[in-house]
């Protein structure tokens, strides 16, 4: 991004802090799944009742697909978490994370009339923390900071030098 020097210090610190926090959260979500050998997304997907219900049922009923989904989910979370914290491919990580969280939201959306047997940790009406986190990640994709604070800076520099040459 060419216009990344337009952030004030406070803006930059706030955006990077948000990036670190969400990165930390997703990274631990990934690791906790990786470190519990019996974890599977089946329990979560079973709860799905809204527009994703059909897809989720298909995933659960097909053990091969379920294994792939579990693998992608675990390592996806870890990759996105590392990306956000290190500022590596920040924009891709942020968008991927936003999409992943949005999928979680669709599978567990607090829509009026849908009741889930797994209790949620707060009280929600249509909007849940998952959706907010997804939108926050989208905001981080729109206001990128990776090339100021993050490994993307090095990538940008190498690319920039190449461009000049």
């Amino acid at each position: 991004m060419r216009n990344n020097k337009t952030y004030t210090t406070v803006q930059l610190v706030t955006l990077v802090a948000l990036r670190f926090l969400i990165g930390w959260h997703l990274l631990y979500e990934g690791f906790s799944k990786l470190l519990s050998p019996n974890w599977t997304s089946a329990g979560f997907l079973k709860e799905s009742q809204w527009i994703m219900a059909g897809f989720s049922q298909w995933v659960i009923s097909n053990s091969g697909v379920l294994n792939v989904v579990d693998f992608l989910n675990t390592w996806g979370l870890i990759a996105i978490g590392v990306g956000l914290i290190m500022g590596l491919c920040t924009r891709t990580a942020a968008i991927a994370g936003a999409l992943l969280l949005f999928m979680y939201y669709l599978n567990n959306a607090p829509i009026i009339g849908i009741e889930y047997s797994i209790p949620s940790e707060g009280d929600y009406l249509i909007i849940s923390k998952t959706l907010i986190e997804a939108v926050a990640l989208f905001a981080l994709a729109v206001f990128p900071t990776g090339s100021i604070i993050g490994l993307d800076a090095i990538i940008t520099r190498i690319k920039g030098k190449k461009d000049i040459k």
Partner: peptide, 13 residues
């Protein structure tokens, strides 16, 4: 300074 900023994520990790 750019390098330090680029590696700011390491202490967090």
């Amino acid at each position: 300074r750019t390098m330090l900023k680029a590696l700011a994520g390491i202490p967090v990790l």
